[in-house]
Design a protein around this nucleic acid. Structure first.
Length: 451
DNA sequence: TTGCCTTTGAAGCTA
DNA sequence: TAGCTTCAAAGGCAA
């Protein structure tokens, strides 16, 4: 029995030493140590399970008696069986190391299981939350790498984007920053010459408080008001309007805007210098009849009622044909007033040529996809410029065509009923829906989560 | 020849 | 009021 006790103590020297250290701070060290050693022996020798402590024994807790030193156990070793015990001891040390390791893991988990679970949940939630963004990021990064767009792309707005953005502070009092007052519409395509025009929106013209504009911008549609002199220079009068356009404002006398290469319509100068400026003038319109209102004032929103292709054909040939074929005079087609362009359309007009040049793409569907992603990648300020331009366009359009309604053009395209497809309006994740979900202003508030 | 594709936003319509 | 539809630009493509 005693021999077995000595043997066990020698083979479990580390364990016993650890137990001694565990109680080394006690006053009655000798009694506690003796009791602990005996208890350990009795428990382990008779295979009574010992519950490991939740906390690891504090080794070398600093100062005090080093009662836990291994040499304390030397008297228990049986020197005659030392070699045999060495191997055993090594084995038990490995077991003890495993036990310590398991205790460490258990301790770490048990110390704050909720925190660990929360951390995991947060990670999962964060991961799920960012998954959509990362998908977009991946798309964008692919797009960036694909198109080698060094300057156009910015750091992804998805990263670190606040979940709920504050209301968009852009355009306080309806005005923009001086830089945003003019939007560069540089179009460069396929090595052609630069086609640079500006949209020098003048606050004098577009500020609702401007004396140039009628005070009652919200006038009832259908009530014609003679347009202001400034506006008459770039927007034709409403069909049937009583206003007369000065002959000097005819297209022949207008400064010619450069013709966009590759058939691209030139981005129109939305801004209006007080003397002579246009809004949404395309090169085709500059050629004459296509956008020519009956008054002789060209306007990009006015196109032949037969549609785009006829419009394009009109651009190229109709002017000459019109002089050769007087038939058209017999059947004057009612001009169609197009919808004012929204912010994204303005952006597309500006950036399309650049994307085409960069990506050597021609299909508008693919280009528009790229532009759509780039649109979302734009900063708030950059998008705000286009929102402001679009807003002014609508104001101007409303001014010049007070009786016009978007309904007027319904059915003009004769579009077939499409199959149900997720679009921007039906997509719950679309910026429009997202703004509505968060109670944000549809035009001015930024929709962060949708970026 | 004409509509589709593809994008976002504005406006109109409907329930 | 929410949800849906249409149109605005653009050019290749298919029927």
């Amino acid at each position: 029995m005693l021999r077995a006790f000595a043997l066990y103590c020698s083979t479990n020297a580390l364990f016993v030493a650890a137990g001694l250290q565990y109680f080394h701070c006690e006053e009655s060290l000798l009694g506690v140590t003796t009791f602990f050693v005996l208890t350990c022996f009795v428990r382990l020798y008779f295979q009574v399970p010992i519950r490991p402590p939740l906390k690891m024994p504090q080794l070398n807790s600093g100062g005090g008696d080093d009662l836990g030193a291994n040499d304390e156990m030397i008297p228990f070793k049986d020197e005659g069986e030392q070699e045999e015990k060495i191997q055993e001891n090594a084995f038990t040390e490995r077991d003890l190391a495993d036990l310590k390791s398991s205790l460490v893991n258990e301790s770490e988990i048990s110390q704050n299981p909720h925190a660990a679970a929360d951390q995991g949940a947060v990670r999962r939630s964060h991961h799920d939350e960012e998954r959509g963004y990362t998908d977009k990021l991946r798309e964008q990064s692919e797009d960036v790498s694909k198109h080698q767009d060094g300057g156009m792309y910015k750091t992804s707005p998805y990263s670190g984007y606040p979940f709920l953005m504050l209301p968009d502070p852009y355009l306080p009092n309806g005005s923009m920053s001086p830089s945003s007052n003019k939007v560069s519409v540089v179009q460069q395509s396929h090595g052609m010459h630069h086609l640079t025009s500006l949209l020098p929106y003048s606050n004098d013209h577009f500020n609702t408080n401007s004396p140039h504009l009628p005070a009652d911008m919200s006038q009832k549609p259908g009530v014609h008001r003679p347009p202001s002199q400034d506006l008459s220079g770039f927007y034709s009068l409403p069909p049937g309007g009583v206003g007369q356009i000065p002959s000097a404002m005819g297209w022949q006398s207008q400064p010619v805007f450069p013709i966009a290469p590759c058939g691209f319509r030139q981005s129109y100068p939305t801004s209006l210098p007080s003397s002579s400026s246009f809004s949404r003038f395309s090169h085709s319109l500059m050629l004459g009849p296509p956008g020519m209102h009956s008054t002789g004032i060209p306007h990009p929103a006015i196109v032949p009622s037969s549609g785009k292709q006829e419009h394009d054909q009109y651009d190229r040939n109709t002017y000459a044909k019109q002089h050769q074929e007087p038939k058209q005079e017999k059947e004057p087609k009612k001009p169609v007033i197009k919808k004012p362009l929204n912010a994204f359309m303005l952006y597309m007009k500006e950036m399309r040529a650049k994307v085409i040049a960069e990506c050597t793409l021609k299909e508008s569907a693919a280009i528009n996809q790229i532009l759509g992603r780039r649109w979302h990648a734009l900063s708030r300020e950059e998008q705000a410029k286009y929102y402001e331009l679009a807003r002014k366009e609508r104001q101007l359009h409303m001014q010049l065509y007070p009786s016009w309604s978007a309904r007027d053009n319904y059915g003009k395209k004769k579009r077939r009923k499409r199959e149900k497809q997720p679009d921007s309006n039906s997509d719950p994740g679309s910026p429009k829906k997202c703004r509505a979900r968060f109670g944000l202003n549809q035009q001015t508030d930024w929709c962060g989560p949708c970026r």
